[in-house]
Amino acid sequence: MSLLKSAGAAGPAIWDDSELLECVAIVPEVPNVATFCFQAPSGALFDYLPGQFLTLELPVNGGPLYRTYTISSSPSRPMSITVTVKAQDDSIGTRWMLDHLKPGMRIKAIGPAGVFSHKLHPADKYLFISAGSGITPMMSMASYMFDHGSEPDIVMINCAKRPSEIIFRERLEHMASRVPGIDLKFVVGTNDRYKVWTGYQGHLNQLMLGLMAPDYLEREVFCCGPEEFMQAVRDALSALGYDMDRYHQESFHAPAATEAEVPELDDVVPDEAETAEIYFLQSDVRTKCTETDTVLNAARSAGLNIPSGCTFGVCGTCKIKKTSGDVHMVHSGGISEEDIEDGFILACCSHPIGKVEVEV
């Protein structure tokens, strides 16, 4: 899909990857993150879908290294193209870029490519959910809609370790201050020292999602971040009854160039047509239910009492020990990873899959 009209014989050409890109500027963002701005030496313009990616050929020691980065700029500003990169502890290519790529240098780029774009999934309302540098395609799409002129309807949720590591925070706040249709929500793991944070803190969960975007069921969802983060988002949405056909995600490690390359998600989703069986060991009670029933509801139907409080996976009152079988649990912070590894579950938000045995 071309977003620029044909330039004509006298106008500038459209860049293609037969021409090298020239680095013209580097903007530090947050620790270990920088935005690299490129232009075409010929003066060609850039035409791509917001949310697509480039594959860069990086001349590291030992031979060229190919690394894929989401484009963080918008095709509504076609004179340059940017990628925003974050170096991890084991980064090679990104570390080379941060340490060695300077303005004036030229590198080979392949693309643009990819199908993670709101242009391919038009909707009246959007929900962008990201973590860390997963904000980059969301920045491209939000910038495009901002530049378009008409007011969009986007709720943007970005998660970071701490406030000082929120990428594009000032730019996003500027757009949101000019356009009420861009609603920003930030979630951080911990505070910065000597600075006050009054926003959401902790891990993104179902309760936060309901507070940030009460109409999430009506929104087209785009998600990008680490695999575990995206899995948690999918689990939360599916447990809330969201239509997962309207969910789209982009992987850090293997972005899809075509629809055929988009991996089919193999998530465990409780099915109300499937029968499950729970054996309450201490009470010597065995009961059948469906996979969409919770262990707590099944216990109550069998005449058993499991102490409970919130019933949303927050308070932890209904924590019990699972001795065998599998459950699908989507909690909101009421149980630790250590307890989960030790076999504990929260009865209020655990759905039995097949045969399950618990100490009740």
Rank of each mutant, 00 (worst) to 15 (best):
L217Y: 05
P180D: 13
K288Q: 15
Y69T: 10
I345A: 01
T55F: 00
V268D: 10
G202H: 08
K322L: 15
A44K: 06
A302G: 06
D339M: 08
A299E: 03
D243M: 03
R219E: 06
D47K: 02
K125M: 05
H351S: 05
I26W: 04
D47M: 03
A257I: 05
M145K: 07
T68W: 00
P226N: 10
D99S: 13
E272L: 09
P103A: 08
T136S: 07
I71A: 01
L20A: 10
S324T: 13
K319D: 01
S140T: 09
V314W: 05
C37K: 11
C289Q: 03
E337I: 06
P59K: 02
P50T: 05
S332D: 07
G149K: 10
L45Y: 04
S301H: 14
G8L: 09
L98H: 06
F186Y: 15
D17G: 04
Q282T: 13
C23M: 11
E218G: 02
A213Q: 06
F38E: 00
P78I: 09
Q39W: 04
F252N: 07
E165H: 12
F222T: 00
P103W: 07
Q249F: 14
I340P: 00
S91F: 03
P50N: 05
M105K: 11
E250I: 12
E170A: 10
L98T: 06
F168Y: 14
L58M: 10
A239M: 15
L184W: 01
T275V: 15
F222K: 01
R162Y: 03
S140I: 09
